[in-house]
């Protein structure tokens, strides 16, 4: 067992050759721990999609290595990758990408069956998972009959069905209104923290910063600045650790948006610690 789920080591991806060569991702390194949520942001054309495809073993890097739970997946042959994708990754897509001819239940169970689970068991596990995500009454609905939030919940259930260690989400809130988008992100955070799964999100949505443990800014194929985020335990705001007001208490580090919040916390730390544990 390694202490990091995902370790990206000096990865570069180039397309084309000589005069037509384009470097989409340049010497990128990253590590994601179990239960950690990493948000990758950046402008269009910055290399986010290329990086996400490489993290998901859908694309091989030109240089560098990608380790998943200690296995160098970037070195694996094509015939081993479907199994890795099926059992180690959970994918969540911008436009849900549910199979339109299958019901919510079938959309989830088909992925379990692809991994070798028998039909009845796969359906039972899928139904339980969907019920946990609040979709018990929507099992036999086709995607076209589901709302955007429900579709994304089905997609999350599909991502979780084979117990992946890493969830890769591509713009998971892009097609959702702000309320539903926020719910989905809270759900992802809950999954990451309660089930100790690592989550890598690629998004333009600034609101996702609130739930991320780390935010990375990708531009011209390189991480420009790595910002560690934390939640102010008093007001709940997302704050950049390096710029926030800081307090160390009983061996724990706390970050605050303002001096007032820090003072308030210091006055009754026990109260805010309990509140903080209850959230997310």
């Amino acid at each position: 067992m390694t202490d990091t789920t995902l370790n990206v080591d000096h990865v570069t991806k180039r397309y084309g050759s000589s005069s037509t060569e384009v470097t989409a991702v340049k010497d990128v390194s990253l590590s994601v721990k179990p239960g950690e949520i990493v948000l990758i942001m950046g402008p269009s054309g910055s290399g986010k999609t290329t990086l996400l495809s490489m993290l998901g073993a859908l694309l091989k890097p030109t240089e560098g290595e990608i380790h998943l739970n200690g296995t160098i997946i970037s070195a694996l042959s094509e015939k081993h990758l479907p199994d890795i994708r099926l059992k180690q990754f959970g994918f969540i897509f911008q436009d849900f990408n549910l199979l339109s001819a299958l019901t919510a239940l079938e959309n989830v169970s088909i992925v379990a069956e692809l991994a070798g689970m028998k039909g009845v068991a796969a359906r039972k596990k899928s139904a339980e998972l969907l019920a946990d995500l609040g979709l018990a009454g929507r099992l036999n609905f086709l995607p076209e009959k589901l709302s955007g939030g429900e579709k994304q919940r089905v997609a999350i259930a599909r991502a979780l069905i084979n117990n992946p260690t890493l969830i890769l989400a591509d713009e998971p809130t892009a097609n959702l209104d702000s309320k539903i988008g926020h719910e989905i992100m809270r759900l992802l955070r809950q999954i990451a923290k309660e089930q100790n799964r690592s989550v890598v999100i690629v998004s333009h949505d600034q609101r996702i910063k609130d739930i991320a443990d780390h935010v990375l800014w990708l531009e011209d194929g390189q991480f420009k600045e790595i910002v560690s985020m934390a939640i102010d335990p008093v007001c709940g705001m997302s704050v950049e650790r390096e710029k926030a007001f800081h307090l160390s208490l009983n061996g724990m580090d706390y970050y605050f948006c303002a001096k007032g919040c820090r003072d308030e916390f210091a006055a009754d730390a026990e109260k805010y610690q309990q509140t903080n544990e209850a959230s997310f």
């Binding site: 998901g56 859908l58 479907p82 199994d83 890795i84 994708r85 099926l86 059992k87 990754f89 994918f91 897509f93 990408n97 199979l99 339109s100 088909i110 992925v111 692809l114 991994a115 599909r158």
Partner: peptide, 16 residues
């Protein structure tokens, strides 16, 4: 086409 691509991305083998 896209749905088959999704299945492939999720881990379906060509044979399946």
């Amino acid at each position: 086409r896209k749905e088959f691509g999704v299945l492939k991305a999720l881990g379906a083998r060509n044979g399946q």
